[in-house]
Design a protein around this nucleic acid. Structure first.
Lengths: 106, 106
DNA sequence: AATTTGTGAAACCAAATAGTTGCACATATA
DNA sequence: TATATGTGCAACTATTTGGTTTCACAAATT
């Protein structure tokens, strides 16, 4: 069970759950109402998301509220960082090209 | 075969391939040298990456050079956007708290 | 022309995945 | 106290996944 964050967000249902609990903490039942699957299936997704700390649990009596652990999302951002540099560099190069064209016009 | 970009980056070998071809275009054989799997396994990963347009092929005789399609990476960035807003907002709120504390000190 | 090299694809396999049903159990509510 | 409710977990299943081996075939090289 290699439960890394990339594998966690690979499943579309899990991404939808993430989107739901990003705005407000929700119970498994409330979350499950939004999908065509059983509550147990959602529960399994929540377990995976909890295991890799993408969501956190808050116990309130017999209810469990799940909410997004936003810090963990930054790890994806961190991974993207190196590639963002690449596409920003390309923009820099485009800028150079554009400024060269402007100079030629003058 | 639902081949979306999130599923593509879920596999660690594929992320490693992405990292390799980000810097320079490489042939399947050259890529495979970096892993403990067969060339054919790498070929399958390349097929998946090509299918969801994360890498592009450049044919040169009988060799095929693979390189990163950086634009596609932006889709992940786009998905992260909504969550980036959240963590940036939280920073704003932290800023408010900090400035309130500073005021109280005065 | 014969051989080597670079590649993709098909057939097969073990493991992982996402789902289901059925359960256990603690907490509310009557 | 008896019942209803909210939840997680185990067992099972069909499908997907990542890997291997074997092959086909075109492009280079001899």
């Amino acid at each position: 069970m290699r439960r890394d964050i990339f594998q966690a967000i690979a499943d579309p249902t899990r991404r939808a759950i993430i989107a739901l609990v990003a705005f407000q903490a929700m119970t498994p039942n409330a979350i499950a109402e939004n999908f065509n699957t059983t509550r147990q299936a959602v529960s399994k997704h929540l377990r995976i998301l909890t295991e890799c700390e993408l969501v956190k649990q808050e116990f309130q009596g017999r209810e469990i509220y799940y909410s997004l652990e936003i810090d963990k999302m930054k790890e994806i951002d961190k991974w993207l960082e190196q590639y963002r540099k690449i596409w920003e560099n390309r923009f820099d190069q485009l800028d150079k090209v554009l400024s060269t064209i402007k100079k030629q016009k003058k």
